[in-house]
């Protein structure tokens, strides 16, 4: 398994491939591979709207970090 950390100032639900998978600022365990990361909306108060990443070669202590900026 691989590990993702979504940085965002507020507590929000994280969408991975359009499915709710955990929250911002926690380490989310996911299957290795290509994923589209976003935040549950509305409100659309974040940028970018979504990020496409290849999740691989991570560990619980070195997760892949994806940052969303609050608008």
């Amino acid at each position: 398994m691989e590990y993702l950390l979504v940085d965002y100032p507020a507590h929000r639900e994280v969408l991975v491939d359009k499915e709710a998978q955990g929250n911002t600022n926690e380490i989310i365990e996911l299957e290795k591979g290509t994923h589209i990361i976003s935040l549950k909306a509305p409100p659309y108060d974040f940028r970018p709207r979504r990020r496409k990443i290849v999740l691989q070669e991570t560990s619980p202590l070195t997760p892949r970090e994806v940052t969303f900026v609050e608008l």
């Binding site: 491939d17 359009k18 499915e19 299957e31 290795k32 591979g33 290509t34 994923h35 589209i36 290849v54 691989q56």
Partner: peptide, 18 residues
């Protein structure tokens, strides 16, 4: 599905998913 579309790109990354 959206997941299937993405997973079809994963032949080299993750063959089980692909």
């Amino acid at each position: 599905t959206a997941q299937d579309k993405l997973a079809l790109k994963d032949y080299t990354n993750n063959k089980r998913r692909y």
